[in-house]
Design a protein around this nucleic acid. Structure first.
Lengths: 189, 189
DNA sequence: ACAAGTCCCGAGTGAGTACTCGGTTTGTTT
DNA sequence: AAACAAACCGAGTACTCACTCGGGACTTGT
């Protein structure tokens, strides 16, 4: 039982709530209970904490997606399931999503390419599912003829936008979920 | 001819490109040509620069909106014009939009309530136009029966998401503009 | 000419930062 | 129990940051 996981947990919380730059090692030390020296015993630099944290978040989310997404049914159903899953995960994995949205692409992209890559893999995972669903839907007749990539981008940006509104408490959107799915169907049919 | 505007111009560029926290007074001094002391002669604190900057951005955008938006025509047309205007402004006022998207609601919200208020006014300006268009459209028959606020939120989040993708070069979206308008129509009709 | 005021300068200040280092504790192996 | 390594500690270091201060230059009104 080392402080390693305590430090990562503290980092998840603080990086998500305040962002990377606004969290100091002293903050991490206080919240995790580990001395500053201990933190640098487990992680070479502050940046290294973020890199490992994001790698873990990426693994968790990709695992969650691959275990929850079912590919039976129509293409339109796959799109709907992807949207629903994203909305659901943004609640069950709130801190992880907060972390993604708060730190990207603002500080992160320039800080570290590995961070950026982790986050892009997460983004692409969902976008690819949407595109796959649209293409499949065009084969089975549940989706109209349109450019899959473009419509995937549009739907994805809509869902991300909604989640951002919710996570940062800008507008109340919980009541919109059914309207979002209905909007997707209308856009694609 | 004082350094005041030079400092604000430098701040617009640097806060937009790097964010508030990642821009130092030395950076501002170098880019504007004004000595550090001169910066603090014109602005009480670094935060004060941001406050005044955002107030100006808000005024500029609200003025642009009120001068460009025409209310003749159907409700659906008002929605489409609002979306088009937002997309257009995100190009003609690129730095200002970058500034909005980079700094909100991450560092800003907690830093200063006046900053937050400026940005919320900008957001609400567009959202209110969308809602107005939807309600008007429901009267004149160009928009189906739905909750105006919810659909306004959904359309707004879609447009913001697209602009974010573009501004940060995450995905190529320039080609999507006509699809976005088409999607709006399908969602509302 | 002189006083007042604005603009400007940049070295200096103190607080905070990420990170280091020498040494202590704890756990494991033999 | 002795030996070794991993985990842990916190004072110390070098650096960056926003901000101050005392004074110089230029403009304006009297």
């Amino acid at each position: 039982m080392s402080y390693r996981t305590d430090i990562l947990n503290a980092a998840t919380k603080l990086f998500a709530e305040r962002g990377f730059k606004d969290t100091s090692i002293v903050d991490l030390s206080r919240l995790s209970g580990a001395a500053e020296g201990t933190i640098f015993h487990h992680f070479k630099t502050k940046e290294e904490i973020l890199v490992q944290l994001l790698r873990k978040v990426k693994d968790d989310i990709l695992h969650e997606v691959s275990s929850k997404i079912q590919r039976n049914g129509t293409g339109l159903m796959l799109v709907e399931r992807t949207v629903e899953l994203f909305l659901m995960l943004s609640e069950t994995m709130e801190y992880e999503f907060l972390l993604l949205f708060r730190n990207y692409p603002y500080q992160l992209a320039s800080i570290n390419p590995e961070c950026r890559q982790s986050i892009e893999e997460i983004y692409n995972c969902f976008l690819d599912l949407l595109i796959e669903g649209i293409e499949k839907g065009q084969s089975d007749g549940t989706v109209r003829i349109c450019k899959p990539f473009r419509m995937g981008i549009i739907i994805f940006s809509m869902v991300i936008g909604i989640v951002r509104f919710k996570i940062f408490h800008l507008y109340p959107v919980e009541s919109c979920y059914s309207d979002i799915l209905e909007s997707c169907r209308r856009m694609l049919r």
